[in-house]
Amino acid sequence: MFAHGFGCDQNMWRFVSPAFEDEFRTVLFDHVGAGGSDLAAYDTTKYSTLAGYADDLAEIGIELGLKDAVFVGHSVSSMIGVMASIKVPEMFESLVLVGPSARYLDEGEYIGGFSHAQIEELLESLADNHLGWSAAMAPAIMGNPDRPELGEELTNSFCRTDPDIAKAFARVTFMSDNRDDLSKVTARTLILQCREDIIASEQVGAYVQQHIPKSEMVILDATGHCPNLSAPNEVVAAIKAFV
């Protein structure tokens, strides 16, 4: 099962998941608010913590009867997968966490990489963003329900996210703290870490690796936060070696 992170949708896996289709049954989905998801299903209370997203993931797994499956999560979905695997331990035999961070905010001796002020600035800048902005304005202003095509033509075909939900998701993501969950993970875990990742640094990845009992870390020869796009072959090779 492949779970995308903040900012995009299941298209994130387009260069990775096909490599597993021969040997595995692959499951891809969009979190509520992203891609082709039903925006009406968004519930402010449920999704005010990552647990709401983890419940969805568990629900999908139960619906599909997943047992001893492999979970591959990117960015914030790493922790969503961690939470789901604690909730339903038999669902995932192993976890692959791409660019995970158990906490983005600095706190005491813990270095997450971001200060409160920086996160606030990020949330602000979401409002100015065009790609998302059009999607927000489209249904609200153009959005006579009898003319859906007006909204459609304004939005991107890839990585569509509803900006209001994206903003809430960003807040939930960057305020989350899953450090206490790590030790409860029983599944085998692989951490894929890039160099020069400004969102989840090597230090942050190492923290996750040190606290998940049965885990190992592979440093990819790729930079940035999205190796599933920038170095898909390496990601595929590392996952294949692990599973």
Partner: peptide, 20 residues
């Protein structure tokens, strides 16, 4: 870019660029 802009670039625009 600003810190916020970096995160945004990395999570939104960079994937878009790579995909389309």
């Amino acid at each position: 870019l600003t810190i916020a802009g970096r995160v945004f670039y990395e999570t939104h625009f960079s994937p878009l660029l790579r995909m389309q």
